[in-house]
Amino acid sequence: MGALLNQRFMTLAVLAVVIAVLPLVFPSSYYFRVASLVWVSALAAIGLNILMGQAGQVSLGHAAFFGIGAYAVAIGPTHLGIPPWAAILVGAVLSAVLAYLVGRPILRLKGHYLAIATLGLGVLIALVISTESGWTGGPDGMPVERLTLFGWRVSGSNTWYWVTGALLLIGTWIALNLDETPTGRAFRALHDSEVAAQVVGVDVARFKLQAFVIAAVYASIAGSALAFMNGFINPDQAGFLHSVELVTIVVLGGLGSIVGSIVGAAVLVTLPQALTIFHEYEHLLLGLIIIVSMIFMRNGIVPSLSGLFLRRARS
C-alpha cells in the first residue's frame, strides 16, 4: 500500500514538475497555447479513460459532453446572465444529469450496440447545438465572454497555461485516487469480466453509470476551459470527429493508463504542429505515425514502453 501511494505521488509530482519547468524552455506564447491545448485534451481523455480503460465501456459520443461544457459557459453568461465561473458548474451538472438519464438505458447495451448508442447521443447533441442558432449561433459558433475570477480577468495563453495545468493536476489526482478506491476496483472488475463482477456482488449497472457520469463531468469541464481559452466556440467541438479524436488519444496513450492519456494528448496535439514543415505530406505522416505506433505498441504508448523497461530491468 505504501509503495502504491508512493507511485501515485510520484506520478503527480512528475506531472507537476513538467508543468512547472516547461515554460522555462518555451520561446513564445505560441508554445504556451499548444501546451494548454494538450492539458485540456488530456483532461477530457483522462475522464474518458476512466470509462473506457478502467470500466471497459466504450463511448463514441463523448465530445457531446465536451460541447455541453463549452456551450454552457458561452450561453450562460451571454443569454442568461449567469456569472462565467458558475456557468462551468452549470455545464458540469447538466452533463452529469444528462449522462445519468441517458446512461441508465443505454449502458445496458454491450459492445457494438453500446458504441452505436453513444454515437447516436453524440450526433444528436451536436445536431441540437448547430440547429438552435438563436441560442448557440448555429454552425458558425458564438463568442464566449472572458472568465473573471474575483475581479481578475483570465486571458492570454500564458495565464491559461497555468489554469489548464492546474485543472489537469486536479483531474489526474482524482483519477489516480479513484483507481485505488472500492469504486475503482469495481470498475476494474467490470472491465475484466462483467459476469464475474456480478457474481461477486458488484452492482454492474450502478458502477457503469458512475463511470459514465464521471467521464461526462471531466469532458464538460475540459470543454468549458477550452471555450474560455479561445473566447469562441463552434459545434465542431461537440461533433463526431472530436469524439473520435478523444478515443484515439485514450487508445494511443494506453487504455487504463492515466499517464497514457496525457502522453496520447501530447502526441496528437503537438504532432500536427510539428509536421507542418512537411506541407502536403503532413496528414500522410500523421496517419503513418499513428498506424505504426498502434502496430508496434498495441497496448498504447505508455503501457508498452513501461512494460519494455520492466522486462529490460529484470533481464
Partner: peptide, 21 residues
C-alpha cells in the same frame, strides 16, 4: 501558410503561431 483543415480550434492555434512565432 498553415492548413487548419476547417477546424476552428486548429485555426486559432495557427493564428497564435503566426503572431507569436
Amino acid at each position: 501558410i498553415y492548413d487548419d483543415g476547417g477546424d476552428a480550434n486548429k485555426a486559432r492555434t495557427f493564428a497564435t503561431r503566426l503572431v507569436e512565432d
